[in-house]
Nucleic acid binder design. Structure first.
Lengths: 251, 251
DNA sequence: GGTAGAAGTTGACGCAACGTCAAAGTCAAG
DNA sequence: CTTGACTTTGACGTTGCGTCAACTTCTACC
């Protein structure tokens, strides 16, 4: 059982040009090439092609895909778990983009200014560029949270005051040795979440809050807002956020 | 107040090359170009650049960004709405992928047989939904055995159970050294053919059954359903199918 | 005023992953 | 034998810049 290039392309939902490209770069060679030069593909090719398309959809580039497929998957379960984690991360990223676009939409519809003049004041994320990229990838660096854009000066100051208060309370609780799931700590987190809700104009989802906690830990810009550097307060905050998310939020 | 290209780039967290590129494509012209050829940017440029970077982070391409920025607010809303719809669609697709990978994981952990297209569902088919649906009626099984789509979960499980039984019986007969044309083996094949008939809603033709046998051998996904890999069971099944086809079926 | 070094300029090529002609050969049907 | 669908191999186009290269200009310091 073998198929022509068009048949296999239709079957897999791609184009013949793509298949020729994959042949050219040695990613997927046809099972047989006729004397007329025609490419013929078999079942094995189809399976490999679909794995290629799967991995491509996961965002991997063809080079990486070739390495994965040819290295022989050591453990299917492991690989699938990896896919899953990647997919969930991807969904979270898209969720954040959706939230961001919604915020932008609301503001443009209300006729509010999209961008204040001193947008770059304060948060100079370029200083930590390398670290952020190393831990989160170029994308995270470029798309990082910029919800605070578009606020008035007064609003900004209020937010900053509230943020400082919350950060101070977290630091105090952590210094006092309180556990992250204690009621008083969770009360701080509740204020924190309300603060976030006001900032982003909507209640954060569970995965968003958890992801944000991880970002706090990963990103020194955020770490600077919570406790002294290296005293473990950021991790403490992350844990408290995770607890809160699992107790009170859904997706 | 005006800045050099590097200063603006650092401030906005991008590169001078990017700014030159934006100048070249007419997306962001510097406020002034010195007699020395140097580009100088002012406050207005900065605001526009910031809007550009924001929209870029939202995933829009530079062409779209130029149209939005140069057209004014109504188009902005329209574009953002469009982009929002796109993002939501993207998230749905990823959700389906996640469900698909989870299913795959569950089944591999239980050692159940994988239904190939189910594994890949959400990857290509949904995107080309119309095309796939259009050609779904015409030749379902020649296109790769996806008869089981549209069945209820219970029905699917029944089919899988039946398939496992048949596979087990084949493997046992082969292990016992029975010939493919023996009566007891042919009895298994008869069940097999009935199973196929139910699945495809029609009695298989002779050439179809023979071709399917060859496909079993060629395709590791099917081989996995019959005996241990490499123990010759698949070939045994193919032979039994061929015998049955030649004895009982026509085209 | 000389000089080093940082920063600026304009090309021009490179990259990923194909899309999109173009010119020409092949196949299946009527 | 013609027609039309399908295939082949080039080869250039696309997006959003990165990355030299070769050269000029600005700034700082001796």
């Amino acid at each position: 059982m073998e198929w022509s290039i068009q048949q296999i392309a239709r079957e897999a939902g791609t184009t013949s040009r793509t298949l020729r490209h994959y042949g050219q770069i040695g990613l997927l060679a046809p099972a047989r090439v006729g004397r007329n030069g025609y490419r013929y593909y078999d079942q094995t090719n189809l399976v490999r092609l679909q794995r290629i398309l799967l991995l491509r959809d996961l965002g991997l580039n063809l080079d990486a895909i070739a390495r994965i497929l040819d290295a022989g998957t050591p453990d299917t379960r492991e690989a699938l778990h990896g896919h899953l984690r990647w997919l969930e991360q991807e969904r979270d990223r898209i969720d954040r983009q959706i939230a961001s676009v919604r915020t932008t939409l609301r503001k443009t519809e209300r006729g509010e200014a999209l961008m204040p003049a001193e947008v770059f004041d304060g948060f100079d994320h370029t200083r930590y560029k390398d670290e952020v990229i190393a831990r989160w990838g170029e994308d995270a660096y470029r798309s990082g949270d910029r919800w605070w854009q578009g606020l008035s000066e007064t609003e900004k100051q209020q937010f900053q005051q509230a943020q400082r208060d919350i950060g101070r309370d977290y630091a105090a609780a952590h210094a006092a040795g309180r556990p992250a799931d204690a009621a008083d700590v969770q009360a701080v987190t509740a204020r924190h979440v309300r603060w976030l809700g006001t900032a982003t104009q909507q209640t954060p989802s569970r995965t968003y809050l958890v992801g944000l906690g991880d970002m706090y830990v990963a990103d020194p810009r955020f770490a600077a807002n919570y406790g002294e550097p290296g005293d473990g307060t950021v991790e403490f905050v992350r844990d408290a956020m995770r607890v809160y998310a699992e107790r009170h939020l859904t997706d």
